[in-house]
């Protein structure tokens, strides 16, 4: 088992964890965290893909993609948190109506 496999398996695990939490967890903050985790998992897969050329320097394209992806997910996180904060401020709830509110 080489390093690439570790990346791949960790990535897959993170994705599964993230998606599960995104669907199951009602709390906004957890949901936002969940998609960040899913995103990290996917980035790990991409980084692993960079080493597909066995010898020689790694492929630079996936790194560029991961960087772009991180920028996107940071801004998405900001939007999500801002919305959640406003919603909490207005209604006092931290989950969507219809989903379990744990507080």
């Amino acid at each position: 088992m080489n390093a690439v496999w570790i990346y791949l398996c960790t990535g897959a695990g993170l994705i599964a964890l993230g998606v599960l939490a995104l669907v199951r967890e009602p709390h906004f903050f957890r949901k936002v965290l969940a998609f960040n985790i899913t995103g990290s998992g996917i980035f790990l897969l991409l980084v692993a893909a960079a080493s597909r050329v066995s010898d020689g320097p790694p492929d630079p394209v996936p790194h560029a993609m991961v960087l772009t992806g991180i920028v996107v997910s940071v801004s998405a996180t900001a939007v999500g948190l801002a919305l959640a904060k406003k919603y909490h401020h207005l209604t006092g709830h931290t989950a969507l109506p219809g989903e379990e509110d744990e507080e």
Binding site: I15, V19, T38, G39, I42, L45, L46, A49, R52, P62
Partner: peptide, 12 residues
């Protein structure tokens, strides 16, 4: 995210 996952699989 699902879409991005597909993209990275295709790229790999």
């Amino acid at each position: 995210l699902f879409y991005l996952l597909g993209v990275s699989l295709l790229y790999s």
